[in-house]
């Protein structure tokens, strides 16, 4: 993995975490991205705590150091605490997380590892717990988090060591 960033945005100095990043170079997509990201965190049927569980599971699997360090304030306000975050490990099925939270993590793992391998029984458990709109929301949230964590890795310059926890707001 490249230790140096492959691209730098020398142009934008707006004070905005996304617009000033390399993503700001792609002017056609940056505002639609921010609006879609806002919708994922604020407008869908799942809570921000639900989405944060999936985001952090993805971050650990993709090994995006930045994504792993971030905690979104709205997820904490919605009930996600560090005691829960510490249970987002490969052994989450044995954890004290709720059955609904475990389903979110298991669905995320299917996306990350074997999207064609969901069993009929697992699908039935999902439909008993989540509405169609919630399943679409979770799927698009995982897709978006995965897209931009892989983006961060692909652009290079990722620190090798874990970073301290950073509580921030969803970029608007």
């Amino acid at each position: 993995m490249s230790k140096q960033p492959r691209v730098s945005n020398h142009f934008a100095k707006t004070g905005h975490i996304v617009r000033d990043s390399a993503l700001g170079l792609v002017t056609e997509t940056v505002e639609p991205y921010l609006r879609f990201n806002h919708a994922i965190w604020h407008n869908g049927p799942l809570t921000a705590a639900d989405i944060e569980l999936a985001r952090l599971r993805n971050a650990r699997q993709v090994n995006c150091v930045f994504c792993k360090a971030v905690r979104y304030d709205i997820a904490i306000e919605a009930g996600l605490d560090e005691a829960k975050v510490e249970q987002i490990t490969d052994d989450f099925d044995q954890s004290e997380l709720s059955p609904r939270e475990k389903l979110i993590l298991a669905y995320t793992d299917h996306y990350l590892q074997q999207p064609t391998a969901m069993t009929t029984e697992f699908k039935q458990r999902l439909t008993e717990e989540f509405s169609a709109a919630e399943i679409v929301h979770l799927s698009l949230a995982i897709m978006l988090c995965n897209c931009f964590s892989r983006c961060a890795v692909s652009l290079g310059g990722m620190p090798e060591e874990d970073l301290p926890r950073m509580q921030i707001s969803v970029p608007e």
Binding site: F36, A132, L140
Partner: peptide
């Protein structure tokens, strides 16, 4: 995706 109507327009724009 249209089954989540509060998300579908933003996804489409993106």
């Amino acid at each position: 995706i249209d089954r989540a109507p509060t998300l579908a327009p933003a996804f489409k724009e993106f």
